[in-house]
Design a protein around this nucleic acid. Structure first.
Length: 273
DNA sequence: AAGTTGACCTGAGGGC
DNA sequence: TGCCCTCAGGTCAACT
């Protein structure tokens, strides 16, 4: 689920509630996430105050008054919601972060596949998971010429190139496919065999699709929910992803699903080269 | 160095 | 109804 727009949607939903809030308790019901939750983490966090809620790629960062930060990753199927007081947790909800002097605020993690992560780091941006991430696609430093430069000599399929967080942070399979549709580029084309002007179009398409998805509150295929529990609506605007057999929105062609790789690619043979 | 594959997990959906 | 198979938004680690 959660690619950059979904994590950003989550960040925006939590930010006004968490900034300045003291952590009352970390309740861990299932420590076996991607990495086991540190058994001492609750002691580390108790009484600390949240300074800011930030995002880097697909990672959420709750910076604390310690100078460090909680690093949260939603994995494939994770979401964070503000749990109404008294709501009993379900079995697929590994932990709660309880905030406030009156313990009135509860952020609940849901993660059916347990690919998510909850870590603490004194220097989060230097953490190995974050340190090697590429530029944020919605900030300066990202451009068509940047992508073109990084792609020199690479034979990897452009779709997989975009999925590499060390090239550009936050893009997953949905938005890689949508951006390639927008730019008219075949998802299996070798990254090193795409011209600089086409990379300009691709960078533009990436920004457009990510901003559109954030405006729609993300894409909910199955699991994703806002901090309020509401789904995102960008799935109604998807032009290629998940639409195999449906008509192309741009030409008389039909969207096709390419399998064979690790993950499906969706494209229109009529207008993507 | 770059590319490919397997691994980690659970749940949903389709075919029989 | 139920069983078996395939697939799913991520990404690290091991291998060629």
């Amino acid at each position: 689920m959660p690619e950059l727009p979904e994590v950003e949607t989550t960040r925006r939903g939590l930010h006004p509630w968490l900034v300045g809030a003291p952590i009352a308790e970390l309740v861990v019901r299932e420590p076996r996430l991607r990495w086991p939750i540190d058994p001492d983490l609750g002691d580390t966090l108790r009484g600390r105050t949240v300074r800011d809620v930030l995002r880097r790629g697909k990672y959420l960062l709750l910076t604390l008054d310690t100078g460090g930060a909680l690093i949260i990753h939603l994995g494939m199927s994770g979401s964070l919601t503000l749990a109404p007081p008294g709501t009993p947790p379900g079995p697929l909800e590994p932990f709660d972060l309880v905030f406030g002097h009156d313990r009135g605020l509860c952020v609940r993690m849901r993660d059916p596949r347990r690919f998510g992560a909850l870590l603490y780091s004194d220097r989060p941006l230097a953490h190995p998971l974050l340190a090697s991430l590429g530029p944020e696609p919605l900030e300066t430093g990202f451009s068509g010429s940047y992508l073109w430069r990084r792609a020199r000599g690479r034979t990897i399929a452009i779709r997989d190139f975009l999925l590499n967080g060390q090239i550009v942070a936050g893009i997953g399979n949905i938005y890689a496919n949508e951006a390639l549709f927008g730019a008219g580029i075949h998802p299996h084309r070798a990254a090193g065999r795409i011209s600089a002007p086409r990379y300009d179009a691709l960078a533009h398409a990436i920004v457009t699709v990510l901003e559109g998805a954030i405006a729609a509150g993300g894409t909910t295929l199955k699991d994703f929910a806002h901090s309020t529990g509401r789904p995102g609506y960008f799935q109604q605007q998807l032009k290629a992803y998940g639409r195999s057999g449906a008509p192309c929105p741009r030409c008389p062609g039909m969207i096709v699903r390419l399998t064979g790789g690790a993950r499906s690619a969706y494209y229109c043979p009529g207008c993507q080269r």
